[in-house]
Design a protein around this nucleic acid. Structure first.
Lengths: 328, 328
DNA sequence: AAACTGTGTGTAACCGGTTACACCATAAAG
DNA sequence: CTTTATGGTGTAACCGGTTACACACAGTTT
């Protein structure tokens, strides 16, 4: 690989002039510019990104810290972030933490050493005291971490209300809510929305815990339905647990949506593959990721953010697990 | 942040000595080592990774170039790669190409400028002439690109044979194969395995094209079954298209596995969520990714690879879409 | 006593960019 | 005819590490 000094020598100018041409910064004469561009062309010169990073203290990389990319909710987020980043000339570093605080710390430390310009953070850890110490821009996604970091979240409460109202509209008299992990703001908000509506409309309800995983959901739902055979509607805090509920219902010999109707939450591709396909609250996952990335890049470029909390709308997607005529 | 020169000054030694302590390289006296370690501790010094990279021409980063992380097959791969990389002290850069050659080029160029140490490549492009020019270690995953790059693939043909034999064992008399994209070695190998068995056993068969996407699969399967109502078994080249086939069958008012039995390929989590859960050929996706990452790192560290092609076994996972008693 | 060998340490060049600063034109203003 | 503004360029320091090389000292060999 040729260096800027090779180019300078070839073009009979100084490295400063070459650098000025490269960065379109400072005074350069037409002739000098031409001869430099020709030299760059002839030598197939590409500036060394690492040397630039060292001086500028900016790597044009942003990190995506996520609990587990294997969770079907995250790839779409990652995709959006990657798309936006690329269009602004940033590269994305992938970090899986399993919500392990130590791993998170380790990553943050390594990332800082590499001069990453910003971090998109999805985590359940609350005590990010050392994160706050870091002077790197951070955007939280899907959950609110602290007032210090801008966050992008879905209209969880609103979505949950739509889901619950829809079940009631479809004739459900006893609705269960499979809630998500305790402490997760998104799950809490969905619970809140659910409770508001059932209380408001005076519909019988019950809430049980899940950890957002499929197997656990089967187990929980099975027990739930054995204990309460009159349940005729389930609002599940995510699509995976909704799939688990469907499996449990099927195992018990009941039918969806005839005996029990279900509404999920997320709008991941899985939903449409189930039989019947899943009525769900669709989050604009891609939009969330894209917005998060844009906000992060704005911060990196020192553009002031107007707000600290951004919400993206949710939408009721009526499909086959509720009895109003949907696409299924 | 303090630098190595700060540490040297604080410890009253030269930067060379500090560097020797850091890298455990060269002669350092016990006393010098102690005073340096104390200085590092006191100043909370962390070496600057970028400066190291500049000199060493190694960033301890590896890139994962994938068509689309949104495809449920890739996250698990990515996860495995990330886990192994982390354990060896490497960071993973995520690159989505959409199989777009230009994007691929752009990435490779940027990556090279950043001194990425190696690339894990999943692509359908064949003409990677400039990739061959690059002097960066590359490992191909899931598909064979050229003899120049070591590759990790599943036992596709063998898996396809197991799938087909299983359908025959379960009593199928007319088996369709939903093949994957033309030109994709893994899809070709699965087709080969299928054809071998149906020819060998003299079972009626038909092959149709899919592009590995859900909607397309519904469409193709619907037409297929309308044209050939006597089909009683389907071997699908991946789990997503198997899900599409199930949806199509359901739409046509037929039942799985009673009217038509299905075997998929991949073993992604989706399979167990379907009702009935999907009998499939399980690839050790995680193992593939982990092996790929290990091979890449070996190459980076100049350890000679014994082989150029590594295969990981596939396994028949009997569940609910075939009639032998499975877990469903 | 001279010649090695093995330890231990420091100086300064190097990796490949960016840029502060000095300097030299030339033209316009006073 | 000086002063000043503006365009254009080069030198060298700097970012923060690594390491070649020179050198110093002690203990062994001949």
């Amino acid at each position: 690989m040729s260096t800027i000094r090779d180019v300078a020598k070839y073009a009979n100018v100084s490295v400063a002039t070459v650098s000025r041409v490269l960065n379109k910064k400072g005074y350069v004469s037409k002739e000098a510019e031409e001869v430099v561009l020709k030299a760059i062309e002839d030598l197939d010169y590409r500036p060394n990104a690492v040397a630039r990073t060292l001086y500028n203290k900016s790597s044009r990389m942003i990190a995506l810290i996520t609990p587990d990319i294997t969770n079907p909710y995250f790839p779409e987020l990652a995709r959006a972030i990657e798309d936006v980043s690329l269009s602004y000339g940033y590269t994305v570093v992938l970090c899986n933490t399993d919500d392990d605080e130590e791993k998170e710390q380790q990553y943050v430390s390594v990332l800082k050493q590499k001069y990453v310009d910003g971090i998109i953070l999805i985590t359940n850890q609350q005590f990010n005291s050392d994160l706050e110490q870091m002077n790197v821009p951070i955007v939280a996604l899907d959950r609110i971490l602290s007032e210090k970091f801008p966050a992008v979240v879905s209209e969880n409460e609103n979505g949950a209300m739509m889901a619950t109202e829809h079940l009631i509209d479809c004739g459900c008299k006893f609705i269960a809510h499979l809630r998500g992990p305790i402490g997760l703001t998104s799950a809490e908000d969905r619970l809140k929305g659910f409770q508001k509506v059932v209380q408001d409309k005076g519909v019988a309800s019950i809430v049980v815990n899940t950890d957002f995983h499929f197997e656990k959901s089967i187990e929980v739902t099975t027990r739930l339905l054995e204990d309460h055979p009159t349940i005729d509607g389930i609002f599940s805090s995510n699509d995976i647990t909704a799939a688990g509920a469907m499996k449990a219902i099927n195992n018990l010999g009941k039918s969806v949506p005839n005996d029990i109707q279900i509404v999920g939450f997320d709008g991941i591709p899985l939903g449409k593959m189930l039989i019947p396909s899943l009525t769900t609250i669709e989050q604009s996952i891609y939009k969330m990721g894209a917005l998060g990335a844009r906000l992060l890049i704005k911060q990196i470029e020192n553009i002031h953010l107007e707000a600290n909390l951004y919400t993206v709308p949710t939408k009721l997607l009526i499909r086959g697990t509720t009895k109003v005529k949907g696409e299924d």
